[in-house]
């Protein structure tokens, strides 16, 4: 099947600083991807390059099989909602929606206006008078109503409260179920979205360090707490991605070969066990004190 996005050795450097280095991956059509990582890891830069808003320094880039730069065929299928999107000062929300309706061929105007009601947006207010949260809501509405075959959301909910975020997740799931498309969600609020993601990519310091189905990651790591000796014995042969000692006690997060038998073995060793959420896993993988390459699972 034709991939939605295919990049190989994608690199972006500014002078001597590499914002993105040698990143390769493919995204299949009609899946929800999570592009995760810390702020400044290079997620936004990658999305800018996919959407031809920024030019790669080197590497191959294909969107729906073609180079996206100035390619009407490709660009007409992309909707990129980014945190720092600028709007003309004099535009009102209604103007922005009107123009967006002229740009995306699958645009559903009725749906857009129903979302305006749900997010309680003042249609006639000028964009520059909107709060951070309202700006985010406008972006979310464009992203959903455009129904673009490739929709990218970069930190789409800054300034939104829990209710509005939950509304976004609900509408995203519903609309995606009815109109499947490739969706890329970039965020550092991983716990909130982890259930929505079919596939997870983790970017750290400009590199892709994890590229895995999110279901494969669930239950793959385990945090154990107990006597140092028991922890060491349990962790033998596994990859330890976190260790902290408190006197004779030790807390450690291990990865690799975790299953129900292993959990039982840990308990038999007198260890307390806790499941590791995707967010915790990624925090461990990207916390900077380990110079790891691609993660082995």
């Amino acid at each position: 099947m034709q991939s939605a996005v295919a990049v190989s050795n994608l690199t972006k450097t500014y002078g001597k600083v590499a914002a993105v280095s040698e990143v390769s991956f493919t995204m299949e059509p009609n899946k929800i991807y999570g592009l995760l990582g810390r702020n400044g890891a290079g997620k936004t830069t990658i999305m800018h390059m996919i959407t031809a808003q920024l030019f790669p320094t080197s590497g191959e880039l294909r969107v729906f099989g073609e180079a996206p730069y100035e390619n009407a065929n490709v660009l007409s299928q992309i909707c990129f909602i980014k945190e720092g999107q600028k709007y003309p000062d004099l535009f009102r929300i209604s103007d922005v929606l009107d123009v967006a309706g002229g740009c995306f061929k699958n645009w559903d105007n009725e749906y857009a206006y129903s979302l305006v009601e749900e997010f309680r947006l003042p249609l006639k207010r000028r964009m520059k008078k909107l709060s951070r949260g309202m700006l985010s809501s406008v972006g979310i509405i464009i992203g959903l109503a455009s129904r673009a075959p490739l929709t990218l959301f970069d930190e789409p909910y800054l300034g939104l409260d829990a209710v509005a975020r939950s509304l976004f997740y609900n509408r995203l799931i519903e609309d995606y179920a009815e109109h499947p498309r490739t969706i890329v969600l970039s965020t550092h609020l991983i716990d909130e979205v982890s259930q929505l993601l079919e596939h997870v990519m983790v970017i750290d310091k400009g590199r892709l360090i994890l590229n895995e189905e999110s279901e494969m990651l669930r239950g793959r790591a385990l945090t154990v707490i107990g006597s140092a000796a028991a922890v060491e014995s349990f962790a033998a042969g596994k990859e330890m991605i976190e260790r902290e000692a408190f006197g004779s006690l030790m807390k450690s997060t291990v990865m690799g070969g975790i299953d129900e038998d292993e959990i039982r073995r840990a308990r038999a060793l007198g260890l307390e066990t806790t499941a590791v959420s995707l967010q915790q896993l990624i925090v461990h993988l990207t916390n900077g004190n380990s110079e790891r390459g691609a993660v082995r699972l």
Binding site: Y169, I173, E174, Y176, A177, Q195, L196, L197, E198, S214
Partner: peptide
């Protein structure tokens, strides 16, 4: 349906289908 499961639990429809 899988879509109903998906919205009910706020999970990816593909996961519900699985």
């Amino acid at each position: 349906s899988t879509n109903q499961f998906a919205s009910l639990y706020q999970i990816n429809p593909a996961t519900a289908a699985k």
